[in-house]
Amino acid sequence: MAFVSTRRQDLVRTAVLLCAGDEATAEDLVQTTLTRLYLSWARVRRADSPIAYARASLTNAFVDEMRRAHRRRESTLADPTVLLVREEGARAPDPDLQRLVLAALAELGPRQRAVVVLRHWHDLDTAETARILGCSVGTVKSQNARALARLRQVLGTVQQDLLVGLG
């Protein structure tokens, strides 16, 4: 109960990124993950970091779900750059930039998105990311490089100060 109270929000945020803003699917994933954690709680408790274990379980649930459903999230924006055009010359309010980043994430394949979230949101190294995703370090590096290239392509036109101004 204490784990859920303190860590649920962390898992929801991770799930929202993995699902590129699809909050309903993210909530489903979190519920699935929490149930799995409960069923194997003895193992979770003994893990060096229960939250790291939970994030790994969440990522597995996400990859499974994406594979099972062959789901491709429909972006809330047909073309993320449309937003930039609309906001040209003006400082984008945070919700718009938030949608832009989520739409950019939606441009990535599920595994690429998982790599980005694990490497750049949770600051995991390539070895740990590879372990969680059950692939080689080389695969993580190549997926990461492709994902970042795509994100730069989509987000590259964003005014740098929009991002810097968030700090």
């Binding site: 990124l17 949101w121 600051d123 991002l163």
Partner: peptide, 9 residues
Amino acid sequence: LKRALGLAA
């Protein structure tokens, strides 16, 4: 990127 992801999350 981390800051952008933080915003998105």
